[in-house]
Structures are given as structure tokens and as C-alpha cells.
Design a protein around this nucleic acid. Sequence first.
DNA 1: TAGGGCGGATTGTTCAACAATCAAAGGAGC
DNA 2: GCTCCTTTGATTGTTGAACAATCCGCCCTA
Lengths: 213, 213
Amino acid sequence: MSSREPGAEQAAGTLRERIISGGLRPGSRLSEEQLSDALGVSRNTLREAFRLLAHDRLVEHRFNRGVFVRELSDADVADVFAVRRIVQLAAVASATPGDPALRDARIACAAAREAAQREAWLEVGSANMRFHTALASTLHSERMENLIDSLMAELRLAFHAMDNELRQFHEPYIERNEALLELLEQGRRDEAAEALRIYLDDAERQLRRGFRR
Amino acid sequence: MSSREPGAEQAAGTLRERIISGGLRPGSRLSEEQLSDALGVSRNTLREAFRLLAHDRLVEHRFNRGVFVRELSDADVADVFAVRRIVQLAAVASATPGDPALRDARIACAAAREAAQREAWLEVGSANMRFHTALASTLHSERMENLIDSLMAELRLAFHAMDNELRQFHEPYIERNEALLELLEQGRRDEAAEALRIYLDDAERQLRRGFRR
DNA sequence: TAGGGCGGATTGTTCAACAATCAAAGGAGC
DNA sequence: GCTCCTTTGATTGTTGAACAATCCGCCCTA
């Protein structure tokens, strides 16, 4: 599969990993010459990869200056959470107990627990986000899923600004996600909505406090 | 301004116009060789332009096959309206009478009336969409505005499938938009929400019936 | 120290070529 | 006549080199 992938997407994939894993930090410039060399692709192909990453908002293209790993501003985080409130609350309001998407959410919860045991906090974060993506898929809208995916990818950029506090940030949400899921599986939508609302408030506050510095 | 624009964006702009105006019909393939020649840019630059259009979902890129003007399926239209219901109803619920965004909406209404007098129905459609974009901007979220913008651009692809019925489709909504705006300016949110709900149901039904053929 | 211009480095764009891939045309076998 | 396979032509994917345009930091000047 991976050998059959177009070069541009493959390059974009490895860059995406490096950004998410923190190897490439927000604000750093991605030199075309350097990277095309390192990734073994031509400059033109690398540029195409950049466009794919820009589409995910992981990278920012400034004309005649190059592409930079995106740096989230306080306003960005606030905006992301504003969207999350609208979309995810709508999802919770429409989720029915039998929905197969809830099983995916359950799987994500298990993955988060497992990663927590290994103290792999970035993976815990990823699993928690898959949880929310799964919740959003109860809307059964392709575009809404894409939107949430994009928002989650964007939020990861803010994770790295929390440095040593990764554990404190991610760990508590494992249980809260499970509790939220429990409510949804029991069809207690109003309580789930309230739990989600509090969840989002807390996460936004922590993230904005954490990386404002 | 236009002479200072990067070549790729300029090319994307003229292609966007041709697609929206109907010169390039959904389903048709955009040949790299032909278009790079016609637009006076190299293949590489044209490819960059394609990426920009693909980002707006106006164009679809199939690997090793080329790029095609997007063709909306019935499911696509349904999905777009599912998103609109969530986002736009949230916008109406949070809109306050004094919001400057409502003035933009008023301007869009006027533009629609003016275009209707000239029987420029495609322009009426554009103005109606600007109306909804303006409404969505009461959410004061950059990402939400982008989302609605993108959905509206996408919907234009479906307009052309309505052929001769453009007038019947667009004209009635001029008044309905004005009525909706009136309710919002008076702070009667619940009534506005109900009006919008009916509006979206009607528009979806017409659009899906109109182009399924 | 402030301001202006010079030069190096990087991006933006073009061009020509080749490899990889697909879709349609044509032929072999039944 | 039909199906399946191969071939072929056209188109995209990718490369590398070249040049123009632009920006940034440096040095020079006042």
C-alpha cells in the first residue's frame, strides 16, 4: 500500500507524523531544499505535499517566505472550541444508544487506557481525539466528520506547548470520556450534553492557559 | 492587485469563475495541457491552481486520471443540508438584533432584489448565498464562516443542473430571506429558527428533485 | 544610532524530459 | 458474435535544472 502511494502524499504523511509527534515544532520553517533532499522527492513534489498539509491547517504558507509549522494563537484555540461546541453538542443531541459509532468511541476509550498504562501521553491524546471524532460521526455526515478531524489535527499543535504537563492534561479526560460514553449508551442525552459542555469548557481553559506563554 | 497575485491563484480564480458561471460543466475533465496553454501558465502552476479548487470542492482530483469538475450526488446535497441545519440554526439561535453581520445580510438582500430586476438569476443565487454566509457570521467564528462559504460554493454546482428552472428556484427565496432577516432584527429567534428550518427543507427538496435526472 | 541600499539565500515559476498509469482499440481464441 | 487479453496511445506523476522575483540580514553612510 505505502509503496503504491503517490509520492506527494507519502511525503505529506511523514511530515504530518513529524509535526504531530513534535519533531517539527510550531513556528519552524520547512525549507524546500532541505526537506526535498531529506525525503528524497523533488521540490515540486514537496510543494504539493505542503499543499496537502496546508489543507489540514498543520502548516502555514506565507507567500515568498516559505511554509511554517502552524502556531496556534489564543484566538485560534477559542475558535476551534466554538466550533466544537456547536458540532459536538449537536452530535450528542442526536446520538442514539445503538449507534455503531458509539462502539468506535468505546474502542478509542480502551486505546486511551492502554496508552496511559505505557505512559505514552501523546498517544492518549490521539485516542481521546479519536473518541470525539467517533462521537461526531453519530451525525452521519461526511463533511462534519472531516471538519472534526481537521479541528482535532489542529488542536494537536497546541499539545506540544504544554510540554511537561502532558500527563496532567490528558489523563483526567480518559475517565470523563468513558463517563460521557456511558451516558450516551444509556440514552441520557441531556446529562451527556451537560457533561460535554463542561468538558469543553475545561479543555479550552487548560489549553489556553497552558500554551499562553 | 491582480498583476501582483501569484499565478496559481489567478489561474484558480478564472477557473472558479468559469465553473460557477457554467462554462465548465460538472463531470468534464480539465486537461492539464490544454488549460496550461489557454491560461498561459505552466503545468506545475496549473496543478497548484487545481489544488486550490479541490480545496473548495469545486473540482475532484482522481489519481492518474486527472481533475474533473465536481458532480454533486444526491447524497452530497443531503450532506450539505445536514451541515447547514446544524450550523445555520446555531447561528440563528445566537444572533442578536444589533449584530453588524445582519447589516451585511440586509445588503445581500438588496443585491438579490436588484439582480432579480435584471433577471440575472445566477446572480440572485449568489446574493442569496451571501445572505446565508452573512447570517452564519453571527457566530463570529472564522472556521464556521469558511465552512459555510465552502458549502455555498459547492451548492452552486447543483444550480446548473436546474437548467431553465433557475428563476423558479431562486426568486421565491428573496422574500423569504427578507422575512427571516426581519424576524432576526426584531429578536424573535424562535420564529426565525422555524422559518429557517422550513426554508432549508424546501430548498433541499427542490434541489434534490431538480438535479436528480 | 537611524536609515538606506547591497548581496546572499530562498521561494515562485517555467521548461523539457522521462516514468507510471489508465482507457480505449484491436486481435486471438472459443 | 462474444469474451478476454494484449498492445498502444494519450495523459498524468515526478524529476532536475534553470532563471526571475522577493525577502532578510548585513554593511555602509550620515
